[in-house]
Design a protein around this nucleic acid. Structure first.
Length: 279
DNA sequence: AGGGGGACCTGTGCGC
DNA sequence: TGCGCACAGGTCCCCC
């Protein structure tokens, strides 16, 4: 589920509940997710106050007044739920509720992750940017440092397919399989295209469609977030219509295009595209 | 050094 | 219905 827009949706759901609250009782139900929890994980969380809930790429960054930051990655199937005081139990499988944070405001935050590709760590807040998780990340796609000029440098002389390149978090941070497929469709660029063969005009268009796809997905997540908050408090999943992703064999949605969406595998991942309007 | 493939997990949906 | 297989929105690590 979680690419940048989904993580941003989770962040904006958690922030109003967690910011300013004290973690009164942190509990884990197993020693590890993808990696082991850090030493004394619960003790280091207990009795700390949450200063802010931020995001970098697909990482949630929960800043604490202990001068540590709780870093969380949702992997493929991670999900946070907010249980309000006296609220109903979360609509998830409790067998995979791995982390529970009880807050002083009587809300509970539950982290559920069936596949356990997610992970958490505690990192000194003043060394966050140099941590192994964040140090090599490229620019946020909505920031000014993400630009066609920067992509030009990264594409120069490289033969790797543009699909694979855009999944590389060092080039641009936060894109995943779905939004790369969608951005390439909107830009009219085939996923197999070697990056060095993408000229300035198409590169500009790609820069624009990446921003557009991410912005629209965040907007869609924000509206769906309110719906979820009203029901079971589950964050991280929302409905979204995609133009090409998971539409193999269906007609291209561009009017006047008679193409059929095709699926190919690149670097072990599915790419969906229209062979007629993506060249 | 860059890039491909497998590994890490569980759940789901499909064809037989 | 049951069974086996393919596949899933991410990242790391090994190997060429």
């Amino acid at each position: 589920m979680p690419e940048l827009p989904e993580v941003e949706t989770v962040r904006s759901g958690l922030a109003p509940v967690m910011e300013g609250a004290t973690i009164t009782n942190a509990m884990i139900n197993r020693p590890n997710l993808r990696f082991a929890f850090p030493d004394r994980f619960c003790e280091r969380l207990n009795e700390t106050q949450v200063l802010h809930v931020r995001r970098r790429a697909k990482y949630l960054l929960i800043g604490l007044d202990s001068n540590e930051t709780l870093l969380a990655h949702l992997g493929m199937s991670g999900q946070f739920s907010i249980i309000p005081p006296g609220g109903p139990p979360p609509n998830t499988n409790p067998a995979h509720d791995h982390v529970v944070l009880c807050l002083g405001n009587d809300h509970r935050i539950i982290y559920n992750d069936p596949r356990r590709f997610g992970f958490m760590d505690l990192i000194a807040s003043n060394a966050l940017d140099e941590s192994k998780f964040l140090a090599d990340l490229g620019p946020e796609p909505l920031s000014n440092s993400f630009s066609s000029a920067r992509l030009a440098e990264q594409f120069a002389g490289k033969t790797r397919p543009v699909k694979t390149a855009l999944l590389d978090q060092r080039l641009v941070a936060g894109l995943g399989n779905i939004y790369v497929c969608e951005a390439l469709f909107r830009a009219g660029i085939a996923p197999q295209t070697p990056v060095k063969r993408i000229g300035a005009v198409r590169r500009e268009r790609l820069t624009h469609t990446i921003r557009e796809v991410i912005e629209q997905a965040i907007a869609a997540g924000g509206s769906t977030l309110r719906d979820f908050a009203a029901t079971d408090g589950a964050l991280g999943y929302f409905q979204h219509r995609f133009d090409v992703y998971d539409r193999e064999g269906e007609p291209c949605l561009h009017k006047d295009c008679t193409g059929t969406i095709k699926r190919i595998v690149q670097a072990g991942r599915s790419s969906f595209y229209c062979p007629r309007c993506q060249r």
